Simulated scan of single mutants.
Amino acid sequence: MLARSAPPHPEQEETTVKAARLSRATARLAVAAAVPLLLAGLTSCSSDDAGDPADAAGSSTPEGTAAPTSSSAPVAAGPFGPGCGLFPVEGPGSLAAIATTPAGAAISGVPELGTLTQAVIAANLVDVLNTRPEVTVLAPSNAAFDALGPDALPALLADAPRLTAVLTHHVLNGRLTPEQLVGEHTTLNGDSVTVSGPADAPTVTAEQTVPGTAAGAVLCGDVPTANATVYVVDQVLTPAG
């Protein structure tokens, strides 16, 4: 006959039950502790997979394809244009001298702007150009006035209201860079003038000039004075009306 095993002692049975409960509790704690670590790992993996948005954007450009560039480069700061030689190299009227001189006085020191100076004096606008802060002056050259014909200039100088309107039409609000010059602007005369691009060779349409036969071009632009930026033009502009 097989011997029957003795029934477990009550104290031993209680110890076994406690051990089983402790084991299950330990397992639950281990799982609870592992969950945050697992979530952190998943988050990290997700973040790594997403990558930097800039990298993702860059990856959309096919290999060997150059990044797009601007269609036109900005004009370098400082005087530019085919006619900048009209300013004296040194002394009064030179670019260096007029940079710290008010606009009215600066223009009067440039021989190739002598007719404009005569007109400004006749219209009593010297002080206006000298004291008006932050403006842009479209300054007609001597050749621009000569293009009006031999009789036009004396008649214009004798008509003070007309002369004042013409001259103030050449003064724009603000110091304008070549890029900013392209567009429509309000003049000191209260009307507007529209300058066409490109920025490195601005022009004004023929119908906006006094002769009305040829477009006006910038001979030398972005010339700084103490209170203004000057663009020498080869046509006299006509005010509205």
Rank of each mutant, 00 (worst) to 15 (best):
S192C: 00
A217Y: 03
D49H: 08
L42H: 02
S23T: 09
A122G: 05
S108H: 13
P140Q: 12
L237P: 03
L42Q: 11
P82A: 14
P74A: 12
V218F: 08
E63G: 09
G83S: 10
P239D: 11
A25F: 08
A57L: 15
V35D: 00
A3I: 02
T131P: 01
P79Q: 08
V126C: 01
T26P: 00
L237E: 08
A77T: 15
D191R: 08
P53S: 14
G190T: 11
S23V: 05
A97V: 01
A50C: 01
G241R: 12
T229E: 02
L148N: 09
S60W: 06
L237H: 07
A123C: 05
D52I: 00
T61K: 12
P10T: 07
F145M: 06
G174Y: 06
S71F: 08
L157T: 05
A33I: 07
L29D: 09
N227G: 01
T203D: 07
T131I: 01
T213I: 09
A32S: 04
L163P: 04
H9C: 04
L116G: 13
G221V: 04
P74K: 11
T194S: 14
A40V: 04
G241W: 04
A119C: 07
A50T: 13
S141V: 08
L156S: 04
V193F: 13
T168Y: 10
V135L: 12
P79N: 09
G91A: 12
T65H: 12
A206W: 06
A144D: 03
T164M: 03
G212E: 08
L113Y: 07
G183C: 07
V223R: 11
V218C: 10
V35P: 02
G109M: 14
